[in-house]
Structure formats: structure tokens, C-alpha cells
């Protein structure tokens, strides 16, 4: 039997994330590793470069808490319900401290993960010509194709370099003890970032028996060979959602701009909901029993498939 990679959130973050590391916390609206972000804040990590295609509330919190000094991203916003004010204050006014940014479009940052995961010197994309981003980000360059274009002429594409985060943290529905991660629904760049990173921490709603994972191997989005730690943390993606487990807490997202706009209110929120709580269980207890009732999905079961073979 494979070695168990189970760890508590506290131990996984303490062991795998060092001050000054580049840490990717991925998730595309779905499966955002919020509890892991809170643990980074609670353990008072410093000088992190935080990476995500779509920084949202938990990145606003990481910036407000002074955990991050740099952010690599391609779209930063709180969906359509308002701004991330801590990030805006840092970028617009250096308040309370500057936040260095390194910015791409979605395909550009995804390409950095793919190049990192595939051990390539760069990843080519057709975007960026004529835009202002390449002048602001020296990591976006052009490269000439060694092959003629369809019209026989020279063809150039833009190139982005590989990204190797020190740590990738992803959230998923379930994994076995060996770190075979199964996720379904909208997956974002989880597989790419897990393979690009030097170490990967998978946070899951539940640890599943080996038989459950092996009954549906195509559902395994990240194999154990790319996972270093498995943390069981139910509802650890709140206020984002986990398909089939709990829906998105849209009320929380709508409430965030008012908290985030006021530095004192944001500091108080971090104290009340992160620093003063020992762990995510305490966070759930503080939300109260029944909190997730309104977020409970209506079941929509998939039909089992037959993986059988002749003996």
C-alpha cells in the first residue's frame, strides 16, 4: 500500500510553505482553497509571491494581512459584485505597503503553468500583439516560428516562460491517502499547476477509500505522483463552492466589498475569523449549525460507467 500523505492543515502549511516562497492557490470560482489561505495568514507567512489566474476574496485577505508582497495573476476581481479593496489600495496607493504585480491574460498565465509542468523553455500564445501588456511585463516576448506560415512567410508568436511555484495548493472533492485527487465540475488549471509546482498540497472535502478512487480512474485529475500532502478539510473552500457538496455563498461575496473597503473593518474581520480561531473547524463552528443548509445542492448523480475487462 502506498505511503499515506495525510496531514493536518496546520502541519501541511508549516512543512511545505516557507517565508519568501512562490505559492499558487488555484481554483476557478469553483474549488478555491480558502481554508489553506487562512492558515497561511494564521501562521503569519511573509514575503510570499501569490499566484492565481483569478485572485478573489482570499487574495484580498492575504494582501491585507501582509502575507504577500507580490501577486502574479490574469484577472483580479470579486466577480460582478465589486472590487477587492485591499488589493486596489496596495496597487493604487501602496497602502499600507506596495504590492508588486506581474500580469498576464488567462492563456498567458495558463501557458506558464503548462511550460512549467512540461519542462519547456516557453509556451507560445497568439495573444498580446498590439496591446500594452508586453511593455509592462518583460516575461511576455516574441519568438519566431522555425516553420513557414501558411502563406509561406515568417510567423511570430508570443512566448511566456515556465512557472515553477514552490508550492501549489488546490482544493477538490476527494482523494485517497496516496494523494490521487478526484475532482469534478469546473476544474480550472489545477492539473497544470500541480505538475508545475515543486510541492503540491491537495485539500479535499473527504478522504476516500482506495476502492472508491479505483472505481473511476478517469475522475482522478491529479495522480498521487504529483501530490505531496493530502489535507481533509470539509467546507474548506467556503465561500466558494464544491460541486455536489455546497453551493457558492453569494451573500458572503456580496458582503465582502463593504468589509474590504474599510481597512479597520477588514483588520477586524481577519482578527475575528482567522487570527482568533485555531483552525477551520473553529471557523465552521463560528458560522454556526445550519449555516450551510441554504447552500445544500439538489443531488444530480452521474450514471456509473463500466471499467471492466476480461480475465
Amino acid at each position: 500500500m502506498a505511503r499515506s500523505k495525510l496531514a493536518t492543515m496546520r502541519d501541511a502549511i508549516a512543512e511545505h510553505v516557507n517565508d519568501g516562497d512562490t505559492v499558487a492557490l488555484e481554483g476557478f470560482t469553483h474549488l478555491i482553497p480558502v481554508a489553506a489561505g487562512h492558515e497561511l495568514i494564521r501562521q503569519r507567512r511573509q514575503r510570499l509571491t501569490i499566484v492565481r489566474m483569478t485572485p478573489d476574496i482570499v487574495f484580498d485577505q492575504l494582501v491585507a494581512a501582509g502575507v504577500a508582497t507580490k501577486m502574479i495573476f490574469s484577472f483580479t476581481g470579486n466577480s460582478s459584485v465589486g472590487s477587492l479593496h485591499a488589493i486596489r489600495r496596495a496597487i493604487e496607493h501602496g497602502d499600507p505597503r506596495p504590492l508588486e504585480i506581474e500580469e498576464y491574460s488567462h492563456y498567458g498565465l495558463l501557458g506558464r503553468y503548462i511550460a512549467g509542468a512540461s519542462h519547456l523553455p516557453f509556451y507560445p500564445v497568439r495573444s498580446y500583439a498590439g496591446g500594452d501588456l508586453p511593455a509592462r511585463n518583460p516575461n511576455i516576448r516574441t519568438v519566431t516560428s522555425p516553420f513557414p506560415a501558411a502563406n509561406g512567410g515568417t510567423e511570430e508568436v508570443y512566448a511566456v516562460p515556465p512557472l515553477h511555484p514552490d508550492v501549489a495548493i488546490v482544493h477538490a472533492q476527494r482523494a485517497d491517502r496516496a494523494g490521487n485527487v478526484q475532482a469534478w465540475g469546473i476544474l480550472g488549471p489545477q492539473q497544470e499547476v500541480a505538475f508545475a509546482a515543486r510541492r503540491t498540497v491537495a485539500v479535499v472535502e473527504e478522504v476516500a477509500d482506495d476502492e472508491v478512487i479505483r472505481s473511476d480512474p478517469n475522475r482522478t485529475t491529479i495522480p498521487g505522483l504529483a501530490v505531496d500532502a493530502v489535507v481533509e478539510c470539509p467546507r474548506g473552500a467556503h465561500p466558494s463552492f464544491v460541486q455536489g457538496y455546497y453551493d457558492r455563498d453569494n451573500e458572503f461575496y456580496r458582503s465582502w466589498p463593504d468589509i474590504s473597503r474599510d481597512p479597520d473593518a477588514l483588520r477586524e474581520w481577519l482578527r475575528e475569523w482567522v487570527y482568533d480561531l485555531p483552525d477551520h473547524d473553529a471557523y465552521l463552528a463560528k458560522l454556526g449549525p445550519g449555516y450551510f443548509d441554504r447552500l445544500r445542492p439538489v443531488p444530480a448523480m452521474s450514471t456509473p460507467v463500466d471499467y471492466g475487462s476480461a480475465l
Binding site: 483569478t54 490574469s74 484577472f75 486596489r88 491574460s105 488567462h106 500564445v125 497568439r126 501588456l133
Partner: peptide, 26 residues
């Protein structure tokens, strides 16, 4: 969809491209 004002010290920081640059190009 990136900034109002100067990029380095924007008056308003907007979300950025996301996939918009790819949609426009393709």
C-alpha cells in the same frame, strides 16, 4: 479593462484581461 490612469500608479485598478485578449485575438 486594466487601469484608469497610469499603469504603475493607476487612479483605478480594474480586473485586467482575464481571457479578453484571447477572445479579441481569436
Amino acid at each position: 479593462s486594466t487601469v484608469i490612469g497610469d499603469y504603475a500608479q493607476p487612479t483605478v485598478r480594474l480586473p485586467g484581461s482575464g481571457g479578453a485578449a484571447e477572445v479579441m485575438a481569436n
